[in-house]
């Protein structure tokens, strides 16, 4: 059989394999993580304090989650656009008695480097559970009265940078007091095992 005939026969098979692989990849990227139910008002039991002057945003992240690197990038953009009219807590969830190097990650250091962000360790995921966060990249936005304004992710897919509904919802509320969207899917690793 001639080489070209073999290539013609192989090509559709190759195309199917490539198509299947691409589809799996895109499907994974666009499949949200586990979703939790965020409390509609600021949980009284939380150790975090709600700002009475500007909206408060709480972000939960897994320090090793590669997808959440994009969340840190989007957070950086949000803060550049809201001009300090936002209090931001980023809570890195860790197991109880975590190893010393648990938070020694690029995500941790990148987040700490963002001005106006308070980076905290949520040992055992206590605060995450209080705020109903199950996946890394979960963002809860509360107004000055402690009412939940937005809950979800601020990336469009797993580890995907770029404009997205969650980011624009946060910016819109902080800058214009408009609620464009109250929830979006969260794309990230599971914060803790159930």
């Amino acid at each position: 059989m001639k080489k070209r005939t073999i290539i013609y026969l192989i090509s559709p098979l190759w195309l199917c394999l490539v198509g299947f692989g691409m589809l799996q990849l895109w499907n994974y990227a666009n499949t949200p993580g586990k979703s939790g139910l965020a409390p509609s008002s600021w949980p009284e039991s939380s150790h975090l304090s709600l700002s009475k002057l500007v909206p408060t945003m709480v972000i939960f992240a897994h320090p090793h989650c590669p997808c959440s690197q994009a969340t840190a990038g989007e957070l950086n953009e949000i803060l550049a656009k809201v001009h300090r009219k936002l209090t931001v807590y980023v809570l890195f969830v860790s197991p109880k008695n975590p190893k010393e190097d648990w938070t020694e990650t690029k995500l941790w250091s990148d987040t700490k480097a963002i001005p106006g962000v308070q980076t905290l360790l949520d040992e055992g995921g206590i605060e995450a559970k209080r705020f109903g966060a199950k996946s890394s990249g979960q963002v809860n936005l509360y107004d000055v009265f402690g009412r939940l304004v937005f809950s979800g992710g601020i990336t469009s897919a797993r580890g995907h940078y770029g404009d997205n509904l969650g980011k624009s919802a946060v910016i819109s509320f902080v800058n214009d007091k408009k609620v464009t969207r109250s929830t979006t899917p969260v794309f990230g690793c599971t914060l803790y095992e159930d």
């Binding site: 692989g21 799996q24 990849l25 590669p66 197991p95 890394s136 690793c189 599971t190 095992e193």
Partner: peptide, 24 residues
């Protein structure tokens, strides 16, 4: 470098991106 492992709490496994990069 970017996404070596995917995590579920303390448990991790090789990220699908690694397999995709190798096989796809």
């Amino acid at each position: 470098v970017v996404s070596p492992r995917a995590w579920e709490g303390e448990v991790s496994h090789i990220h699908i991106h690694v397999w995709a990069a190798i096989f796809l």
